[in-house]
Simulated scan of single mutants.
Amino acid sequence: MYVQYCYIMSIFSIDAMVKGKKKSNEPSGKKITLKMAKNALKVTIDGKRRLDLSNMEIATFPKCILKLCDVDELDLSRNQLKKIPDTIDQFVKLRWLDLHSNHIEQIPASMGRLHNLYSLNLCNNHLTTPGLPHELGLLRNLRILNLGMNRIETLAPSMAALKELRELGLFNNFLTHLPKFLQNLPKLQKVNIKSNPIPTDDLEVDHIQRVECLYLVREECLCADCLKMCKKERERLESRISAASKQKKSIFAGLLTPNSVAQDNQAVWR
């Protein structure tokens, strides 16, 4: 009996160790309570209710925020999210959704039911072409879509239905060609396709302006390579501004300033 008891205890110990190991693989991160979420509610200048949970080390989509699904804007950027649940479609009033700088690999098809959405930021994630559902083409009111800094090779043809789209970020992806349907989007004005392996022959788009996007982030939120690149770009920009400033001073040297002229002629203006 004693031997059998020891054998059973050994099996139990091994099983407990295995279960403990599984738990260690589960996503870790800050847990958001409903009280914390309510405290994160803000009102924008134009009177919209924004739930700001950005940069809070969240690894799992907080289920409690579904009780605040009547917000107009939702910011979950700069976290550790890997998955967005199908229940995202409960945010029926959502106009603005920011999910940039997470670890998201796939967007749920239910996001296509956010018919009021006009701005969607998915920049700096782990998205691939299969991770973008065809249902994104159902976002008929979408005006701004940022897919930059992902692993996307091509866009789904269903996105040709985004007739209200004005701005599209595709920079730093794996695109080898520019989708032809972009030329047929009537309101599309800006497309950023920087840092893609696209041949120069495919870069001609008649009515679309190619631009580079600007984002403001804290230095601690950037990796070493990104921080180095940003500092290099900043030095280049400052050098250009300095050169332009010197040229402007030389052009107007010796002239009276507008304020001094206005001051001398105040009596005339009166």
Rank of each mutant, 00 (worst) to 15 (best):
G131M: 06
S250V: 08
F61S: 05
I88A: 02
M9K: 14
P197Y: 13
K21W: 11
N124L: 07
V205P: 02
A160Y: 03
H134D: 10
I152D: 00
S24A: 14
S77Y: 01
R151V: 02
A156Y: 14
P62I: 01
T200W: 15
V71E: 00
N125E: 03
L132T: 02
V43G: 13
S242C: 06
R140C: 11
A59S: 05
K42W: 15
K22A: 12
I88C: 10
V92E: 15
M56H: 08
D46H: 06
L168P: 01
F171I: 05
L255G: 15
I65Y: 00
L142W: 05
E73Y: 14
L142G: 00
L138T: 02
Q247L: 14
Q90N: 10
T129A: 08
L97N: 02
Q80M: 10
C230K: 03
G112T: 06
I251A: 03
Q189I: 11
R270E: 09
C226T: 13
L139T: 00
I58P: 05
E164I: 09
L188T: 01
F91N: 01
F61V: 13
I58W: 01
R95S: 03
R78F: 07
R166P: 04
H134V: 15
K231S: 07
L136R: 02
Q263V: 15
P179G: 05
I58S: 01
Y5S: 11
K249T: 07
H207W: 08
T257L: 15
N173V: 01
D72T: 09
N150M: 05
A160N: 11
P133Y: 06
M111W: 04
L51W: 05
V18G: 15
F181C: 03
E220M: 15
R140F: 03
L139V: 03
L175G: 04
N172Y: 09
Q209P: 14
Q266G: 15
L145C: 06
S13G: 07
L203S: 08
D70I: 13
F252V: 10
M159H: 08
N116W: 12
K35D: 12
